[in-house]
Design a protein around this nucleic acid. Structure first.
Length: 397
DNA sequence: TCTGGGGTCCTAGGACCC
DNA sequence: TCTGGGGTCCTAGGACCC
């Protein structure tokens, strides 16, 4: 019947997720070209297949997308909505197997080795999930099934839209070798160009190139990994998402200005807004971090980062902001045209594990109390209720 | 009015330590 | 008085993912 011969890894990927959720909530948009995205300097987050026909795809600048498909209906993203749908789908996955690894809001790996008493095959699990997701969420998805994560990921892409593709163990090279190198997970624009320069266009070309040549071109680590993947050899296991014992590695926020700016006051105000946001998210996640990184992107898109590692971990708005502005001041910019600034805190640990030594004479509670008060007020009244005085817009005409 | 915002992981050099 | 060899931390940048 099905030819998955015991391949246990599923990759389930929603089709045009944001756009699908958007048209589900507005059925009159069905069959129309719909683009989720926005902002005059934004990019396409997701587009329906009716829009893709015109060449629109995700990550494309909105300006270009509108030019390609002037009749497209542009919908602003509603991340709370997406997140709610995503949670429901992930829960459904967990009802089938505990070994679920979400990769993003709209895709996950599942290892169903343990589910094969309840289901005759991995393919049966895939069919079941596709039907249930459509029944309960009215959106379609695609499923890839293979012996490894890398293959399952490629298979789901080949299954799009609304399909299921199995890569049987005995058919790995027949499936893989005709594909373009850029189909491999981990090969982006830069690596693809490097491989093309070597005359390698297909995965088969890559597989049949001596490992030493590939390593020399791509570096030992990337080279070895991709060469192995070209043979379907991929050690990456499905690892259920980090629990609360293992927090995210970093939390950050950045923002592209609606117009490039050379006004230091504008930049500082934005750094304050971003620091406020980042620190609040850290406190809400109960983590604390030591390294603050400032990101600055200039008008020509060149991007630099500057970081400072503090003596102790922090989750204080004030300390994140102070560090970010010091890093910015140290750049010594003279009227540079700035496109984007960002603030990120890395080296996160569980707040309960962070011990902080007070400086001599430092007050034990100061900014920390202020942050807590702000968090409480935001919980009660919403984010607009409490913010630093310099962020309150004045003199709206 | 080309090119978002959220992340992860890797590399590489220098400092520093034993 | 001519040059070790790890290991870890810090910093900066870059590739990649959705």
């Amino acid at each position: 019947m099905t030819d998955d011969d015991g391949c246990p890894i599923l990759h389930v990927d929603m089709d045009a997720f944001y756009a699908s959720v958007a048209i589900r909530d507005r059925p009159e948009l069905r069959h129309l070209p719909v683009i989720v995205g926005g902002g005059h300097r934004g990019v396409v987050l997701s587009a329906t297949y009716a829009a893709r026909i015109h060449g629109v795809h995700s990550a494309m600048p909105m300006t270009r997308a509108r030019r390609l498909c002037p009749r497209a209906i542009v919908v602003a993203p509603d991340f709370e909505r997406f997140s709610a749908v995503s949670s429901a789908i992930m829960e459904m996955f967990r009802s089938v197997t505990p070994t679920v690894e979400p990769l993003s809001m709209d895709e996950a790996f599942l290892d169903v080795s343990g589910s094969l008493r309840r289901f005759p095959s991995a393919t049966a699990v895939g069919d079941y999930l596709r039907i249930r997701i459509f029944d309960e969420q009215q959106i379609t998805c695609s499923v890839g099934i293979a012996s490894t994560t890398g293959l399952a990921k490629i298979a789901s892409r080949r299954a799009k839209p609304d399909g299921l593709v199995v890569v049987p163990r005995h058919g790995v090279t027949a499936f893989l070798h005709p594909l373009g190198v850029e189909e491999l997970w981990g090969v982006g624009e830069v690596t693809a160009a490097q491989l093309h320069r070597l005359g390698l266009r297909t995965v088969g070309d890559l597989a049949h190139t001596p490992l030493s040549v590939v390593k020399r071109a791509l570096g030992p680590s990337v080279g070895a990994r991709l060469h192995a993947m070209a043979w379907g050899d991929d050690a990456r296991m499905v690892t259920p998402r980090r629990g609360p014992d293992e927090p995210d590695r970093s939390i950050g926020a950045d923002e592209t200005f609606s117009r490039d700016t050379d006004d230091e006051a504008v930049v500082r105000r934005e750094l304050l807004r971003l620091s406020t946001k980042v620190a609040a998210r850290m406190r809400s996640a109960q983590v604390s971090g030591r390294t603050v990184t400032l990101k600055v992107r200039f008008h020509d898109f060149t991007t630099i980062t500057r970081s400072r590692t503090l003596r102790d971990t922090t989750d204080s708005t004030q300390q994140v902001y102070a560090t970010a502005t010091q890093l910015f001041a140290a750049l010594g910019l003279q009227r540079a045209r700035i496109r984007l600034v960002g603030v990120r805190v890395e080296g996160l640990i569980d707040k309960a594990l962070s011990t902080r030594q007070l400086m001599l004479g430092e007050r034990a509670h100061g900014w920390e109390d202020a942050d807590k008060a702000v968090d409480r007020a935001v919980t009660r009244f919403g984010g607009a209720a409490v913010r630093p005085a310099t962020l309150i817009e004045t003199s709206r005409p």
